[in-house]
């Protein structure tokens, strides 16, 4: 494996700072960090717990030239930010990570082995508390169907040389019923299953797909009743960059009130889904950041799929593309005319 430290040090010659990871999280998992000097970059790591989408920081660093380590999924966020003229392509150096074998869901590890247990998550193998385990069982849900193993935009490539992702989707069933994030989500999943009247071994997305609208309404009501309005979903989203003027918090227009209840939380998420139409790259950071484990990606994935079906468009795959909702097709759009 080529060395992430030396790549970052090389890129540091061209930019003010580089966004990457250090192994300073609980039990040695990765935490985001920034490097400004070659000495600082000595700390940099890249392993299978580097799940965070660092592109979220780019809009806040517009006054600097920035290097960023980006997985395939993260690179779509970078491409989308370039498309939206939110960042300048010339001022960003992307170290694309190529050939990953899927990332590890550390919450899954913590849930089964305790918080802070020592984790050595290499690209191709996983050690928990010194013992090797089958890494397939701890992969993140979203990595199983990965379509973005090759970074969309990159200036340098970091060859991670992980195992191929294809074929592992069937093997990874442990805890697949949960959307892969919140520790407290099991209660929710049980509720969801009782609503759908199905067995426990099926993924939540499948259960959701089999619910009728009334069941879904109750399902969401129950999910949203746990929302504490911390706005972590918004803060973690690389595409939610209108920080000071977010309509989730303005009183004029008054889309949401100040209350913390299921109704307001639902409106918040409807706003988010709406504002991310044709922009969401499906990185899953909103769901990962949610402290109460609301499966937000059920909505985002659905919308991304609908947009792909309707307009043949995937956000963040082409910085030059025309967003589908900012244009129209006089003839082609008439399919649903009544």
């Amino acid at each position: 494996m080529s060395d992430i430290v030396s790549i970052i040090q090389r890129v540091l010659g061209e930019v003010d700072l580089v966004l990457g990871w250090t192994a300073t999280g609980a039990g040695g998992v990765a935490a985001p960090d920034r490097f400004q000097t070659a000495a600082e970059a000595e700390r940099a790591v890249f392993n299978a717990t580097c799940v965070h989408n660092l592109a979220v920081h780019l809009p806040r660093l517009k006054d600097k030239t920035v290097g960023i380590v980006a997985k395939g999924c993260d690179s779509r966020s970078v491409a989308q930010l370039i498309q939206e003229r939110e960042i300048d392509r010339d001022r960003v150096k992307v170290i694309g990570v190529h050939g990953l074998g899927g990332m590890i869901d550390v919450r899954k590890i913590w849930r089964l082995h305790g918080y802070g247990v020592p984790v050595d998550a290499r690209i191709d193998s996983l050690f928990i508390d010194g013992r090797e385990v089958d890494r397939k069982e701890y992969l993140r849900q979203k990595c199983l169907g990965c379509r973005d193993t090759v970074p969309v935009v990159h200036d340098k490539l970091f060859e991670a040389q992980g195992p191929p992702i294809t074929g592992i989707a069937e093997a990874a069933t442990v805890e697949a019923i949960l959307p892969g994030t919140g520790l407290g989500a099991s209660l929710t999943a049980a509720e969801a299953m009782s609503a759908a009247g199905e067995d426990e071994s099926r993924p939540l997305s499948e259960l959701f797909a089999n619910m009728n609208p009334t069941e879904r309404r109750l399902f969401w009501r129950e999910q949203y009743s746990r929302c504490i309005r911390c706005y972590a979903c918004r803060e973690a989203c690389p595409m939610c960059f209108c920080r000071d003027v977010c309509i989730m918090q303005t009183t004029d227009p008054h889309w949401t009130g100040a209350g913390v209840d299921a109704g307001e939380a639902e409106m918040m998420q409807l706003i988010r889904v709406n504002h991310l139409a044709g922009r969401c790259t499906g990185c899953g950071e909103c769901e990962r950041a949610c402290p109460v484990g609301i499966p937000l990606m059920l909505l985002m994935n659905e919308q991304n799929q609908v947009i792909e079906d309707l307009f043949g468009y995937r956000a963040g795959t082409d910085p030059e593309a025309r967003p589908p909702l900012l244009t129209f097709d006089i003839k082609g759009d008439s399919r649903s005319e009544k």
Partner: peptide
């Protein structure tokens, strides 16, 4: 909307969840 469900309903171990996994570069 119905009265907010009690906080215990879905939150597992809140202190642990906000571990440094999500630490942000300052």
């Amino acid at each position: 909307p119905p009265a907010k469900a009690s906080c215990e309903a879905g939150v597992g171990a809140p202190d642990e969840q906000t571990g440094s996994e999500d630490a942000v570069p300052a």
